[in-house]
């Protein structure tokens, strides 16, 4: 997957918090994977819900879209294969996020 950048990365009000947000994403991806292995659906749903709400605001509409799909799958009690597939897509996106190193 190609690197993903925030659409707001040039906004001086946003630069710093985008960087902070992006730094947390690999950790979130790991957490989602772990919760799924433990069948801990409520925590998967919470994390997906939070990423859905924040992603677009930080300039990553792909995160919001993939997290919404995952949240919906957990909410609907979908079969584990679908949940895992959607979680995989989301985690791939989270790990592809890149920010310009601030000097």
């Amino acid at each position: 997957m190609d690197p993903i950048r925030s659409v707001y990365e040039d906004d001086p009000d946003m630069m710093e918090i985008i960087e902070e947000f992006a730094e947390e994403l690999p950790g979130r991806a790991t957490a989602i994977t772990e919760y799924i292995e433990q069948n801990d659906w409520p925590n998967v749903q919470t994390l997906a819900h939070q990423l859905k709400g924040a992603g677009g605001g930080y300039g990553f509409p792909q995160i919001t879209e993939a997290a919404a799909a995952l949240e919906q799958a957990v909410k609907d009690d979908s079969d584990t294969t679908l949940i895992k597939e959607r979680a995989g897509t989301l985690c791939e996106i989270l790990r592809a996020v890149t920010v310009t190193e601030s000097s």
């Binding site: 009000d13 918090i17 902070e20 924040a54 605001g57």
Partner: peptide
């Protein structure tokens, strides 16, 4: 009042102006 701190920071940055 939001359970995600990412949202606090985002709102603060957006309302700074």
């Amino acid at each position: 009042i939001d359970d995600s701190e990412s949202i606090h920071k985002l709102v603060a940055a957006r309302l700074k102006a």
